[in-house]
Amino acid sequence: NKFNKEMRNAYWEILHLPNLNEEQKNAFIQSLYDDPSQSANLLAEAKKLNDAQA
């Protein structure tokens, strides 16, 4: 299933973003579980936030 793979990839990438705190990571990961079809968008948002907090 495409979403499972996308979701897993997004999950791991978000988990390893160095500039997000636990609360931010948890919020993105919760959103992933709530709507796996948004994995790519959530990952993009997480990366933007990560870069902004660098």
Rank of each mutant, 00 (worst) to 15 (best):
N50M: 02
N26S: 13
F3S: 12
L20H: 00
P36T: 05
D35G: 08
W12M: 02
A27T: 07
I29K: 13
E13T: 15
A27S: 12
Y11S: 03
L32R: 00
Y33Q: 03
A40V: 10
N50R: 05
A46K: 00
H16N: 04
L49Q: 14
R8S: 03
A52Q: 11
A10T: 08
A10I: 03
L20W: 00
R8Y: 15
M7G: 01
A44W: 12
S37Q: 06
Y33N: 01
A40G: 07
Y33G: 01
N26G: 08
L17A: 04
A46T: 02
K48H: 12
N1W: 00
Y33T: 03
Q24D: 05
A46N: 00
S31H: 08
P18L: 10
A40T: 09
A27D: 07
Q24A: 07
E13L: 15
K25G: 02
P36I: 02
F28D: 00
N26M: 14
E13V: 15
S31A: 05
K48I: 09
K2N: 12
A10F: 04
L32F: 02
L42Y: 12
A44Q: 11
A52V: 07
L42D: 02
S31D: 06
A46H: 00
A52K: 09
S39T: 04
K2R: 10
N4L: 06
P18D: 10
S31V: 05
N19K: 09
N21W: 11
W12H: 04
L43T: 06
F28P: 00
D35R: 15
W12R: 11
L49M: 09
K5H: 02
N1R: 03
K48F: 09
S37D: 06
K5T: 01
K5E: 15
N19Q: 08
N4H: 09
K47W: 13
A27M: 13
A10V: 04
S31L: 08
S31Q: 07
Q30A: 13
A52P: 05
Q38D: 07
K48G: 10
A46I: 02
L17N: 01
Q24F: 07
L42R: 12
Y11V: 12
A40D: 03
N1I: 06
D34R: 14
A27Q: 05
A10K: 02
L43Y: 05
L17T: 02
P18T: 10
R8L: 10
Q53V: 09
N4A: 02
H16K: 13
L43H: 03
K5F: 01
A52W: 13
N9G: 03
E45A: 14
K5V: 02
K5M: 01
E22F: 14
P18W: 15
P18V: 10
A27F: 13
A54S: 11
S37E: 07
D51W: 14
D51V: 09
L32M: 04
I14A: 01
Q53S: 08
L15Y: 12
D35S: 11
L32H: 00
E6Q: 06
N41R: 12
E22I: 07
L49Y: 10
S39V: 06
Q53P: 07
N26K: 11
K47Y: 11
A46W: 01
E13I: 15
S39I: 11
Q53L: 11
N26E: 07
K25Q: 07
L49A: 08
H16T: 07
K48R: 11
A27H: 10
N21V: 13
A40S: 09
K48L: 10
A27R: 10
K47R: 10
Q53T: 09
N1L: 03
Q24T: 08
D51Y: 13
I29G: 14
A27P: 04
K47G: 03
N19M: 12
E22S: 14
I29P: 00
N21T: 08
L20V: 09
N41Q: 07
S39E: 00
L43E: 03
W12P: 00
A44H: 06
K5W: 05
A27N: 08
L32E: 00
F3P: 15
N21Y: 10
L42P: 02
L17H: 04
L15V: 10
Y11H: 05
E22N: 13
A40P: 06
S39P: 14
E23R: 14
Y33P: 03
R8V: 05
M7S: 03
N9D: 07
P18R: 15
P18N: 14
A46S: 07
E22G: 12
Q53G: 09
A46Y: 04
A40K: 12
Y11K: 09
N50T: 02
Y11M: 13
L49K: 09
A46D: 00
E6H: 05
A44K: 12
E23Q: 12
Y33L: 09
D51Q: 12
I14V: 04
S37P: 12
L15Q: 06
E45N: 10
P36V: 04
N9V: 14
E22W: 11
E6V: 08
M7W: 15
L32K: 00
D51I: 12
Q38E: 11
R8M: 09
K5R: 03
K25T: 10
A40Y: 15
Q30M: 14
E45T: 13
E23F: 14
N21H: 10
E22T: 12
E22L: 13
P18Y: 14
N19S: 07
Q30K: 13
Y33S: 02
A44R: 11
Q30P: 01
E13K: 15
F3M: 11
D34T: 14
K5G: 03
L43M: 06
L43Q: 08
F3I: 13
E13R: 15
L17Y: 04
Q30R: 15
F3T: 13
N9R: 15
Q53D: 05
E23V: 11
L43S: 10
Q30T: 08
L17D: 00
H16W: 05
D35I: 13
L15S: 03
N1H: 12
L42W: 14
S37G: 05
E13Y: 15
Q24L: 07
N9M: 15
K2I: 08
N9K: 15
F28H: 02
W12V: 04
L32T: 01
K47H: 04
Q53F: 09
E22P: 06
L42H: 06
N41A: 11
Q30H: 14
K48P: 01
R8P: 00
A44S: 08
F28A: 04
A44P: 03
N9P: 01
K5Q: 11
L17V: 01
E6S: 03
D51T: 15
K5N: 02
L15I: 12
L15P: 00
A10E: 00
L15A: 03
A44F: 15
N19R: 08
L15N: 05
W12Q: 03
K5S: 01
S31M: 07
N50D: 07
F3H: 14
N50Q: 05
D35E: 07
E45K: 15
A40R: 08
A46G: 04
L43V: 06
A54H: 08
A54I: 06
A10D: 01
D51K: 12
N41D: 09
N4M: 03
I14T: 01
A44Y: 11
K48S: 06
K2S: 11
P36L: 03
A54P: 08
A52H: 10
L17K: 02
Y11P: 00
R8W: 15
P18F: 14
N9I: 14
W12G: 02
Y33I: 06
N19F: 12
E23N: 12
F28M: 05
E6W: 02
